[in-house]
């Protein structure tokens, strides 16, 4: 790929006590592209995304976005940096004290000091884009099904028209049809915004649908990356084991060792 890198991670390391979670991550994503990171549970996928956002501070290494080093940002600079992001969380992570529309409008009202009325109109429009009517806007998150919560989470992630969007297991816990609906919505909204995205998932159907490029993470390292099509002919035994979902292979689950 000769496209210039927009998001660049260089030798990013993070340990929690004695446990090394990220073991020197090297990764690049060109602008406007969609990278899907696959890998088993507990391989450091979520931590990797959180280091880019600055929720988790890496022990060493460099993270650059558009050529700007972001690991040391603080205070106002950091708030401004975060305004360029949107994120869809695994469990949607909606604020259960607020009605749906306020969840979607949250980043506009609190982060950008937009007036409530204008923010509400934008929220309703974003909800419409993910296939939810205005009546849903008045409900509370607890009154919604899992699939609807995910869609509200997606509406919240795209509400402020971010340049960069992260999706943390967007389809986990959904039935296959709803999972595909979410995948389509992701593809649509990313195309509409022209955003650069990183998704983490272990759902191969979802990965194939939303990825331009795929990278596989194992034990805190990127062990393979390539185009979405190349994943089937990678020749990498780890990747093959993962995409075919076999228990036997080079990746041994913790349970077998114990």
């Amino acid at each position: 790929m000769d496209e210039t890198a927009y998001i660049t991670l260089k030798d990013v390391r993070k340990a929690f006590g004695p446990k090394k979670v990220l073991n020197g991550i090297n990764l690049t994503v060109p602008k406007g592209r969609s990278l899907v990171v696959i890998g088993g549970s507990g391989t450091g996928k979520s931590v990797m995304i959180k280091t880019i956002l600055g929720i988790v501070r890496p022990d060493s290494g460099s993270i650059a976005i558009g050529g700007e080093e972001v690991t040391r940002l603080k205070g106002k600079d950091r708030d401004q940096f975060l305004q360029r992001f949107g994120m869809l969380f695994q469990g949607a992570a909606l604020f259960d004290s607020l009605p749906v529309w306020e969840n979607v409008a949250f980043g506009l009202i609190q982060g950008r000091n937009m007036g409530r009325k204008q923010a509400r109109d934008i929220a309703m429009e974003k909800l419409r884009q993910v296939g939810l009517g205005p009546e849903v806007g008045e409900l509370h998150p607890a009154e919604l099904s899992g699939g609807m919560q995910k869609r509200v989470g997606l509406a919240r992630a795209i509400a402020a028209d971010p340049e960069i969007i992260f999706f943390d297991e967007p389809t986990t816990g959904l039935d296959p049809i709803m999972a595909d609906v979410i995948n389509n919505l992701i593809v649509d909204s990313v195309k509409r915004l022209g955003a650069t995205t990183i998704s983490i998932t272990h759902d191969m159907a979802s990965a194939r649908k939303i990825a331009d490029r795929i990278a596989m993470i194992h034990k805190g390292e990127i062990i393979w990356q390539g185009t979405a099509r190349a994943v089937d002919t990678s020749g990498n035994p780890y990747v093959d084991q993962f995409i075919h979902g076999r228990a036997e292979g080079p990746i041994q689950m913790e349970i077998l060792k114990a």
Binding site: D79, L82, G91, F106, Q110
Partner: peptide
């Protein structure tokens, strides 16, 4: 509860400290 359901992380990603 907000911590374990990632709502606190979500605040951060919405540029809210």
């Amino acid at each position: 509860t907000m911590r374990v359901t990632e709502q606190i992380d979500a605040l951060t990603t919405l540029a809210t400290n």
